[in-house]
Amino acid sequence: MRYWRSREALLVLPALAVYALLYLYPLSRLGVWSVFDPEPTLKNYRQLIADPVYAKALLNTLEVSFWVTVCALGLGYPLAYLMTTVSARARVWLMALIMVPFWTSILVRSFAWVVILGTNGIVNKTLIVLGLIEAPVRLLYNLIGVEIGMVHVLLPFMIFPLYGVMTQIDPALLRAGRSLGAPPWRAFVHIFLPLSLPGVAAGCVLVFLMAVGFYITPALLGGPQQITLATLIEMQVSDMLNWGFGATLSVLLVGAVATLFVIFTAALGLDRLTGTGKA
């Protein structure tokens, strides 16, 4: 198939220029920094392999991202489904509520969670008043805090691909299923669920890959056990002023994301992830 016709191709040039200047160029500089100090050297990469801290951080990052994805799917799927069943008016409201996080800075939201989840925060106080717990539960600076904060931020990225695919599912298919003898839950399992899977795949890949590179939320809400690659990079660059090794960690992070993306697209099909395929 011919994607490019010369004159239409000009239309993507501005975007391509911005992308090259602001993304590809700095990224290539990072790659260069990781192997010069100032002479060519592989010492940064030797350090990366020698110290298990970094492999541990990568595994941590993947683990946190995995659970964020699972939780976002668990919360997002019913919500997206709800949006396809309610009236147009109610849908606008739901959409607005889901969009609100987009309009607030991640920093503000993460600090808000610090207030809410803290030892004297509203969650702990309520639980104590209700008599469900006796002493405050630790909700911050651990995996729970990171999960809550990141799921909150990333939920829209799960919901929108899901909703997009779900609205494409012809309601007549479900009626057909009912008329052929399927009670509502079987019609859902045999018809709606399989047809919504491309949305599940797209949402999960999007949320997972974004979670892998997350910095602010894990840094504010996580503890020492939740050291992620992004927080390590920040430490190297602003605390230790070790730009070379920070760059090396960045290369590792970009490499990990790219590798995962390639694996996911190969396993699930690129057309599904980009939504260009048919359900």
Binding site: A172, A176, R178, L195, A279
Partner: peptide
């Protein structure tokens, strides 16, 4: 009765075949 308990065949306007 719910549709699934009526035992009536229905052919829909756009056939509503299950694409998957």
């Amino acid at each position: 009765l719910a549709p699934e308990r009526r035992n009536i065949g229905v052919v829909f306007q756009n056939y509503a075949l299950f694409p998957h």
